[in-house]
Computed example of a mutant assay.
Amino acid sequence: MVDHHVHGVVGGELERGVFEELLTESDRAVPGWMTQFDSPLGFAVRRWCAPVLELPPHASPEEYLAARESWGSREVARRLLAAAGVDRFLVETGLGGGLAEMAALSGRPVHEVVRLESVLEEVAASGAAAADLPLRFREELAQRAASAVGVKSIIAYRWGFDFDPDPPGEAEVVRAAGAWLREGTSRVSDPVLLRFALWTGVEHGLPIQLHTAYGDPDLELHRCDPLLLTRFIKEVEPRGVDLLLLHCYPYHRNAAYLAQVFPHVHFDVGLAVNHTGARSEAVIAESLELAPFAKVFYSSDAWGLPELHHLGAVLWRRGMTRVLGHHVDSGDWTFDDAVRVARMIGRDNAERIYHLR
């Protein structure tokens, strides 16, 4: 398997409160009257991660956290990453977490996906003047992406998909850069600069990952429907650059439509698989309703807790087995075709798009 979009693991021992905050996409504190263990993801941790730490399935949260502390964070990470059975990780480094650390903990090859906005923010923080920022960004991105397999945009978080789909002009970029630098904020959120970063990624030619839909409250979900990207998708099509829509829930059927009608559009339901837990089979089934199977990818979008790296793979395998097994049992598919499709989504599609072979 290839996890085509994933993040690093948080090091060090975690108190219960911090652990529970990493079990949710919310950036708010968990209310004192509830626990994130009482969620689809929390139940999945107790069911599928507990045995990896030599506990019985469905161990209590207290037993699970005690075992986690006893093993130590590095051993927990090694165990869970190994049990995931993922052969290669494509790590998006915008959230922190080094490639070397991920490679050491997993014992598997890792490749970098560069976050466009992070590079732009680093260039601005280096003291670049507004007039120099466009060229400095292009140069820095070229250097960073030279050893990467793809780039990623979080324009969904910083603005939304209802942006002007055309590339901005150079003078427009310089004016926006001047305003941003005068504000003195480290976070880039100007739509002109976000479009500039995205189109610079297009010019570079690597596959572009786009965070789509489900995420933390920093985004406005109704502005992250991938259908809002339709005009941008059409603008990119002649340039031969692949667009990979990440996560997509609850708009995964919309993403499947785009993947069906545009040759350069692909998608996954990573992140949603983890957070829907026992219901992840339904999300996986819906993701396979319309799009050609060569356009669907596996990812976990795990970050922080190695439990998420493990569960992404376990729940995806479980869901695919049940969904495709039903097709075989009903006589609609052959067994060999089911295996072939599982391999396409779990490995082959990523190897093709990211040139991993």
Rank of each mutant, 00 (worst) to 15 (best):
L206Y: 05
T200M: 03
A176P: 09
R16L: 14
A282C: 09
D225H: 12
D268T: 15
P56G: 06
G98K: 04
H211Q: 10
H275F: 13
T93F: 01
Y354T: 06
L53K: 00
V10Y: 10
H222E: 11
E351T: 13
A146L: 12
R158V: 05
E140V: 07
R144P: 06
D27N: 14
Y64R: 02
A44T: 00
S153I: 03
K234V: 13
V265M: 10
A130I: 01
E172A: 13
W316E: 03
R144V: 05
F163S: 03
H204M: 10
E307P: 01
V188K: 00
T200R: 02
R182L: 13
I345E: 00
A125F: 13
E75M: 12
A146N: 08
V6K: 01
D3T: 07
G98W: 01
W316V: 03
G127Y: 14
G85V: 09
P292T: 10
A342M: 10
R79F: 09
H327Q: 15
E20K: 08
D3L: 10
R352C: 04
Y257D: 09
W71K: 12
A130E: 04
M344G: 01
V149I: 11
D301S: 04
T212V: 06
V273P: 04
A125I: 12
A59T: 09
E351C: 15
G277Q: 02
I155T: 14
D225A: 14
R158M: 08
P61S: 10
F137L: 05
G12T: 07
V30C: 11
Q143V: 11
H247M: 07
L23G: 00
E281P: 06
P292I: 05
A156L: 01
L311K: 02
P134D: 06
A338M: 11
L133H: 04
R239T: 07
N349I: 08
R79S: 09
A59S: 15
W333A: 01
T230G: 07
R68Y: 02
S126P: 09
R46L: 15
E62P: 01
E183G: 15
L229D: 01
V241K: 02
D27V: 13
F297Y: 14
